[in-house]
Design a protein around this nucleic acid. Structure first.
Lengths: 325, 325
DNA sequence: TTGTAGGCGTTATCAA
DNA sequence: TTGATAACGCCTACAA
């Protein structure tokens, strides 16, 4: 089977190559009759545009890149996994493909941008895990490389488009659910102050409960969660329910409560595999939708119909009720 | 900043474009002095070969594709995630990039091959989740598309290179560990017969234990595992330890034992986040290494130095000891 | 060992 | 509305 190029199609349809190209890229400019004839030839021959050739002319690759991180503590790893799946789906629908890269840290990642950009002519990047003082966004912005972040620009003004999940709304919903279930003393188990995401999750709980409420902090992990929960449960007026900043912390809290023989409702965050497996009530992020919105924003940027003001999308999470609350 | 092409470099180094190309692709053919001069120019200008242009000439994209599946039951989802990360790393080292795609089923995936191949000139595919009567491998083989599978060709002769983890060795090691710990009645909790992976895992346990041993089967999941384990523990001579085909089943078994107030050692499979979180002893697959070996095999195929006989790699898993066994 | 010529498949430009 | 021509950046063949 011969390689089918635009010339093959042109010959078969009895037109010039340029006309075939027009049918593909600017159909309106071609007379209907001709258009049909060309389209038939395309179908009959199974023609597909050659990306490399197109890219060489247009300078656009229809490729977007995203970093795949090692599943940090494992327990939260599948969050990125689900986001990636959603992004790949959404990109495919929009005619783009997703390319993966790894990087050890921010600087390594920036070096990778440089490489990817000059070798592969990448059209855009999707950044995850944004944080305070993130050097990646400014690097890209300075070079006018299109990108979107999944995660708002913490501590910086909105200089680029982003999509994020409303973390505070998630813990607020969890707290309200516990309140409605009759709990009076609802505590919060979170991370040390300073991380944007962690602070937002604490904020949501605080917003619903008003000034009062026992809370403790620990770096993420089952062990840390158990210890922090133990301390909280050992007070004079121990909480009867705990809203947690992650499923790891929640699992630790559950273990602590069981050891102490205490009844304590627990809500986790991220609806990870662990939550599903052990029946932990948890706040779930709409990852597929977040990915789709990232792709939407990117498509806008790439089609040149970008708004002058960066677009921002804040998605509401949902509470998945299970046995623990 | 001007776009730096091979011509820019040539001008700066005072040689022809061809010489620059030679320095890049066949350095041996260039005189040392010239080579150095050209290399300096390359560095000074920050020149990078343009993949699209190179691809158009050579027909090779240095892109390999792999499917990202939705995390099925979630609990095992991170397995693919870790494999992908390893593959991206290994590919990068070998000068390749990983492109992602999704597919609803085998036929959909085959349609995607067709698309990716003609539009992007993909160099190769890495297939995961091979199964009995897999139509994907024959489709690719018929068209001489280079590919490697992570997972052996179940029920078919070795017509292509593959990498797999020795599932039977994993459960065998688990069984031996339990034996050494003094357990006499070691049961197996697996999936219904018919899946290659599941059968292999049962086989390993059986091999160590000889003819005797209580076993039960259930489709994967915590619920199913709990039920099957309950039945096993209710017999006259209940097992004192259970080797399980997955962490999901193992978690179910753990819950069943606790409900019944029974002591029962449990070993899971895949060392997922859940196992780490709850302290479940589990068999761990060397996913990063598996990915690296896949890339090695692919590189062989793509460099044309492929062995006439398909290469097969069987990697030993390891047992991660935690509290449950 | 180095240089010249040509073409990979596509699209932008411009003329018909 | 359609077609001819040139160019994107690179590599292969061949000539010098």
């Amino acid at each position: 089977m011969e390689k089918v190029t635009i010339a093959t199609v042109a010959r078969r349809a009895g037109v010039s190559r340029q006309t075939v190209s027009n049918v593909i890229n600017t159909p309106d400019v071609v007379r209907e009759e001709t258009r049909e004839r060309v389209r038939e030839a395309i179908t009959a021959l199974g023609y597909r545009v050659n990306q490399a050739a197109r890219q060489m002319r247009t300078g656009r690759s229809r490729l977007i890149a995203v970093r795949i991180e090692p599943a940090r503590d494992g327990i939260n790893g599948s969050v990125l996994d689900r986001f990636l799946h959603g992004l790949t789906d959404a990109a495919g629908l929009a005619g783009y493909r997703v390319m993966l890269y790894t990087a050890a840290d921010d600087n390594d990642e920036i070096a990778t941008y440089d490489d990817l950009l000059s070798a592969y002519d990448l059209d855009a990047f999707v950044l995850t895990s944004t944080h305070h003082g993130d050097p990646r966004t400014s690097w890209l912005a300075e070079r006018s490389v299109p990108f979107v972040t999944f995660g708002r620009p913490w501590g910086a003004p909105d200089m680029h488009s982003w999509v994020d999940v409303d973390n505070a709304a998630g813990t607020a919903a969890a707290t309200e659910h516990l309140l409605a279930a009759g709990h009076q003393r609802i505590g919060f188990l979170g991370w040390p102050a300073g991380s944007g995401v962690g602070d937002a999750r604490r904020e949501g709980w605080h917003r619903v409960l008003g000034p009062w409420g026992p809370s403790a902090a620990s770096t993420d992990g089952v062990q840390g969660g158990a210890e922090a929960a133990r301390a909280l449960l050992a007070t004079d007026e121990p909480p009867t329910a705990l809203v947690c900043a992650s499923d790891s912390l929640a699992l630790g809290a559950l273990q602590a409560a069981r050891e102490l023989g205490r009844e304590c409702a627990v809500v986790g965050f991220d609806d990870t595999a662990v939550a599903q497996a052990i029946g932990l009530t948890s706040v779930s992020q709409p990852l597929a939708e977040a990915a789709a919105r990232c792709m939407d924003l990117l498509a806008e940027l790439l089609d040149g119909r970008a708004p002058s003001v960066p677009a921002t999308v804040l998605l509401p999470p949902s509470l998945v009720l299970r046995q623990t609350a």
